[in-house]
Structures are given as structure tokens and as C-alpha cells.
Amino acid sequence: MSMFVAALIFVVLLTVAIACLMWAIGAPWPIRDPAVLARTVIGRPGVTRLPKLASLAVAILALAAGILALSLADHTAGDWWLTLIGVLLAAIFFGRGALGYTEGWRARFSEQPFATLDRKNYSPLCIALGVGFLLLVIMRLI
């Protein structure tokens, strides 16, 4: 069961990593207009294009988190530090998901379509990833 949960997390994070890598190399996928893509992905007023270095950093971090999910499913790998990283990742994803529903976040990232997509897709996905990492940690401990 833990490998199934880890595989789901990995596929989601690999998809995010691939999209961010494409943006880091300048590919305007899936929206050809850079300003609309930036409003869809970042949602901060005044942003007209995706920052390439930040996109690359998110790609690397998303891939690393996905690999860590797979590592958490292997109960023979790592030690207490791997479990601790799983707890931290669960907290990070829960935190990002919860932030998406706060007024401060809404004010800072108010551009459409990001604001709507964040409320309906991005934040719930982060919460689901947090649940997934928490499940992996629990399954690792029992």
C-alpha cells in the first residue's frame, strides 16, 4: 500500500517538475502568451513572465520530493532522518495548501486565473500531497 501512495505522489510531483523544467528552458507550455502563463502559474499582480531560475528550482525540489516519497515507501531505506524529512514535507505541503485559503494569500496572489485555480486545484492538491506524505510516514512507523 505504501508503494502505491508513494507512486501517486511521485507521478504528481514528476508532472510538476517536468512543467517547471519546460518553463525554465523557456517553453511556453501549455499557454503560449507569457503574461497569461505567468498569471496562471504565479498570480501575483504585475508579473508578466515566469522566472526561469525559480522555475528550475521548483522543478528540482519537486523531483527531489517525489524521490523522497518513493524512499519513504521502502521501509528498509534510511533511518529516522528520512522519516523526519517525510514529516517536514507533509507540513510544507499542508502549510502551502492551507495558505491558499487565507485572506493574506488571496491579496498577494490575486491575479486571475491563478486565484480561482489555486482555490479549486493547487491548494487542494498540496493538501492531498501533505496527506500522502503523512500516510507514508505513518505506514513507515507501524
Rank of each mutant, 00 (worst) to 15 (best):
A24R: 12
A73F: 12
W81I: 05
R44Y: 08
I92K: 06
R49I: 02
L129D: 04
A54P: 08
S2L: 13
A90W: 06
F10K: 05
L99A: 11
R108C: 07
T40L: 02
A17P: 07
G46M: 04
L82W: 10
A65L: 02
L56R: 07
W23H: 02
R108K: 14
V137Q: 04
F109L: 12
G104L: 02
A38H: 08
L136H: 10
S55G: 10
R44T: 01
A65K: 01
G130P: 01
R49Y: 09
L84I: 09
I138F: 14
G26Y: 06
L136K: 06
C126W: 13
L72N: 00
A24P: 08
L89C: 00
A115N: 08
V47T: 02
M139D: 13
P124E: 06
M3I: 13
V16I: 15
L61T: 07
G26F: 10
V5N: 10
G66V: 02
G78S: 03
G46C: 03
W105M: 08
P45D: 05
I92Y: 14
L129N: 01
F133H: 01
K52C: 09
G78C: 03
F109M: 10
I60M: 04
I92N: 04
V131G: 03
I25S: 01
M139S: 14
T76F: 11
W29F: 15
D74P: 04
G100Q: 03
I142H: 14
A128S: 13
M1V: 12
L135C: 14
A17D: 04
L117H: 06
L125F: 11
L37M: 06
T76C: 06
A7C: 13
R44G: 01
I18V: 13
L136A: 07
S123T: 11
A17I: 04
V16P: 06
Q112T: 11
L99D: 10
L72G: 00
G43F: 11
W80G: 11
W29E: 05
I138M: 08
V12C: 04
P51H: 09
A54I: 14
I92C: 03
L99W: 14
T83Q: 05
P34V: 01
M3Q: 15
A35W: 09
R32Y: 03
A54Y: 12
F94L: 04
A65R: 00
A115K: 15
A107G: 09
L50M: 13
H75C: 07
A19K: 05
